[in-house]
């Protein structure tokens, strides 16, 4: 039996829907979570949701651009994690906890 291509089986709408759901989960958890680690993880989810959308779209049109964009998003995510973890360590040093609401000294 011939192996069936995934792209054929999963329609584009389903892929994009998954991406949108993932993105919303990430966004909502940024809004509701107070722990900085979870905020960083939510950011990762949102980035990967975007990546998924690119891949799905690229596969649908049969062009490599989607994969190129995913590579870009991966590198951005790596940089973001480096900076984010650095900030996280500083926040932990200064605030003695990881509550984002405590880091609100720059209010007007």
């Amino acid at each position: 039996m011939e192996p069936v291509s995934v792209a054929v089986v999963v329609p584009m709408e389903h892929g994009l829907l998954l991406a949108a759901v993932l993105f919303s989960i990430g966004l909502i958890s940024i809004m509701v979570r107070r722990n900085i680690i979870f905020i960083l993880m939510s950011l990762e989810i949102m980035l990967n949701a975007c990546g998924l959308a690119f891949i799905v779209a690229g596969a649908h049109w049969g062009v490599p651009d989607g994969q190129v964009m995913f590579m870009l998003i991966l590198s951005i995510a790596a940089a973001e994690v480096a900076v984010g973890l650095g900030l996280l360590l500083q926040a932990h040093n200064r605030l003695r906890n990881l509550d984002i609401d405590d880091a609100s000294k720059m209010r007007g």
């Binding site: 940024i30 809004m31 979570r33 107070r34 609401d101 880091a103 000294k105 209010r107 007007g108």
Partner: peptide, 18 residues
């Protein structure tokens, strides 16, 4: 009045942006 919105809370900013 305008500076009242500047709470310094990241989550509020994100919510407003959204």
């Amino acid at each position: 009045l305008a500076s009242l919105t500047q709470t310094g809370q990241l989550r509020r900013y994100v919510t407003m942006m959204t």
